[in-house]
Computed example of a mutant assay.
Amino acid sequence: MNSKRHQNLQGYSFMMPALLAILFFTIVPVVYAFFLMFFKVDMLAGTRNFIGLDNFGKIFEDPKFWASFYNTFKYVLVVVPIQTIIALALAALLNNKVKFSRGFLTVMFIPTLTSSSAMTLIFMWLFNNNGLVVNTIDDLFGIRLEFLTDPSLALTVIMIMNIFSTVPHFMIVFLSGLQDIPDSLYEAASLDGASAFKQFRHVTVPQIMPITFYVVTMGLVGCFQIFDQAFIISNGTGGPQNSTLTFSLYIYQLAFNSNDMGRATALAFVLGAIIFTVTYIVNKLLKADEVNG
């Protein structure tokens, strides 16, 4: 009995640094933020006044909230399906023993290794009003598009950049899942007369459903929390005309520009509830927790 208790104490002692880090840098801030969302907080003056649920009322009455809501959901609905499909297609291509696949894999993975800030600056250079992409489109089609200053196009640049930088990582994840599928399943399907498309639909897709759920979930969480690209491209304003204003950028503006930490924490919990709800729905739709036959 004493030996078992000693082993338990040893285990907890090894875990203690990680547990303390989680406690002080995750649990305590979340609890404090939950406390703050019911107050009007002035961080500079160091004062707070209890106002109940008024912070939520102010959020839902603010047109910037609905602009960030629209932009974020538009971003999620476009980026997540496209990056998932492209990643799966490239993984399937590599899994079929394409020549030079290792070199292709190395080149494809470079965007994921590049920092988000550096990638954003590169895309700003490509898509600015005198950038390579704008000039190329102008030379080929005679159309002058101003991506970064046009409210209908600014968010598109961030979408393209996110897809470009996240596809390689998800491609590797899909590839690992594809390589774990037993060849015997494909052989059995082939003997039953299944075409390549039917094998993909009835063998590959069900077998990689847990991987697909992981990719979609990570894509959803990342897209809902998009901040740095929108901040850098708009210089923190969410412009032009709030077209790149996202939930996370709006939270930043409330906390550090408007000095309203109460509303910022309230919006953070709204965002958390949205992410949890959407993830739960995706889990039920993909049935990732079921055993795939």
Rank of each mutant, 00 (worst) to 15 (best):
S190M: 11
G222C: 07
G238V: 01
E187W: 08
W66T: 11
T106P: 07
P111F: 04
R102M: 14
I181Q: 04
G52K: 05
S165F: 06
S195F: 02
Q10E: 10
V167D: 01
F276M: 14
T212W: 07
V167R: 00
M108R: 09
I281K: 10
S234A: 00
N95A: 03
S3M: 14
Q7N: 14
V107M: 15
G177Q: 07
V167H: 02
L267R: 02
R48M: 15
G222F: 11
T279P: 11
G219F: 05
F35W: 12
S152R: 13
V78N: 01
D228G: 06
S13G: 06
Q253G: 03
T72I: 09
T84G: 08
I85L: 07
F276A: 11
A18I: 06
G57W: 01
Q225R: 15
P210V: 05
G219N: 05
T114A: 13
D260H: 02
V78R: 00
S190L: 15
L155V: 03
M161K: 11
F50T: 08
A45G: 04
I110W: 14
V30M: 09
G11E: 07
R5C: 13
L93Q: 09
I275R: 04
D183K: 15
I160R: 08
P206M: 13
Y12A: 14
L286G: 11
L254D: 03
L105A: 14
I137G: 01
Y70L: 13
E187D: 15
V30P: 03
A92L: 11
Q241Y: 10
S176G: 06
T149A: 10
P81L: 00
H169T: 01
F269L: 10
T149V: 14
V134D: 01
T120R: 07
L93S: 14
V282D: 09
F147T: 02
D54V: 00
L175C: 03
